[in-house]
Design a protein around this nucleic acid. Structure first.
Lengths: 222, 222
DNA sequence: AAATAATTTGACCAATTGGTCAGGATCACC
DNA sequence: GGTGATCCTGACCAATTGGTCAAATTATTT
């Protein structure tokens, strides 16, 4: 799918310096792309951030797009991780709680990855377009089937599985993507562990409470 | 707060041509800024989109930043509209349903405004920083008090009012901001009226069900 | 219709941007 | 220490970008 071009493709084994410098460049690129998107970011800015010269960055990554693709690829890996973990044989409430928790951890620990993803989508997903319509679509379809099954067996109330998935994505990613707004509105410098716990409680409270059948409460203890 | 500079400030009354052309420029600018953010957008692109020359755009707006500020200002007006409508004396379920509905209409009818806002926040909110921490913060504080009151009088379950507000923002804005992802995953070209109704049903179902006390169901008919 | 005001734009400018290249510096290996 | 490979970068290039300006054109007023 995404094949970023490097300027030294012949070598399969990276040298010590290559490994070190590529990581440095990608870390820097992630921050710059997260803030300005592809068009708004400059290779010079990325180089500065990585404490290198621009030609040095080009020594490792031929074009700006190769940088972007490399960053996007590793972003996608992280973004997908929590989604793959949803177990169809598990208890719905527990699986969903676990998923929400994992997504919030992602937002807390990888805010710039979340923002890269958001920025790519806001740009109309030029690079990820095909991936979204094929790979991710299949993945969501599978999960939607699991949720549909939970609904049909009375373990969750009737709701559109797709919109449940989008709700969880939106709610959890918000704390990374819109962090400047959230912190400003709450009068905070940043959101710490305690606040993320409170967020998790709130989201699970509302979402799970909204999904679990009310009949169950009537017939049994909670 | 935001004072975009125009090149003809002396005139208080706009000519026919000014009114027409400024609107055209701002419509075009909104689209371009929404996609590429401030840094990534070019005045030339905006001019092309408005079917004008670049110097012509500069005749009306002195600098690129003035364009951005003007677009941001009108974006903020639209963004805020639904929030102001939340009536503290109304029924919680109805008020929240109404707010969710209004926010979804915003996402459906003003996707680029939503994206401009998102892009500004993703960039770290350089322009809106002060507004967020002061005006919006006060506004949210007031609404949080209303929600807190609803909770304390037993009309809503215990939940953090701020995170409820963020949940609604996130869930509803998602359909504008992440539209390429949503449509791709659902295998659609776009989301029509019917789908937005389904979204509204799903979100209200989950969120309101999650908020309304379960005791109330036990004691009375629904 | 003529005069005045408003609008439009081709040509231009300095600065910035993605990218190239050759030569020097550093590293790894013998 | 010598040699070859790898890494780094100042200088350079063409294209792009935000912005300016004066002349031509169009619109409005007298």
């Amino acid at each position: 799918m995404l094949n970023p071009e490097r300027t030294d493709p012949a070598k399969s084994q990276k040298t010590r310096i290559q490994a070190r410098n590529e990581a440095r460049i990608l870390d820097a690129a992630q921050l710059v792309f997260a803030e300005h998107g592809f068009r708004g970011a400059t290779v010079d800015q990325i180089a500065s951030r990585a404490k290198m010269s621009k030609p040095n960055v080009h020594y490792y990554f031929k074009r700006k797009m190769d940088l972007y693709l490399a960053v996007l690829m590793r972003t996608l890996d992280i973004w997908l991780e929590p989604f793959k973990e949803m177990d169809p044989d598990g208890d719905p409430a527990q699986e969903l709680r676990h998923y929400i928790s994992a997504k919030l951890s992602f937002s807390r620990d990888n805010p710039t990855a979340s923002r890269i993803f958001a920025t790519e989508i806001l740009q109309g997903a030029p690079v990820l377009e095909r991936y979204l319509g094929e790979d991710l679509r299949k993945l969501v379809e599978r999960k939607a089937k699991v949720i549909r099954h939970w609904i049909d067996t009375g373990r969750l109330v009737e709701v559109d599985p797709y919109h449940l998935v989008f709700l969880i994505w939106a709610a959890t990613q918000h704390y990374a993507d819109f962090a400047p707004q959230v912190t400003a509105v709450m009068g905070r410098k940043n959101l710490g562990k305690a606040e993320f716990d409170r967020i998790e409680d709130s989201l699970c409270q509302i979402i799970l409470n909204g999904l679990l059948p009310r009949v169950a409460v009537e017939h049994g203890p909670r």
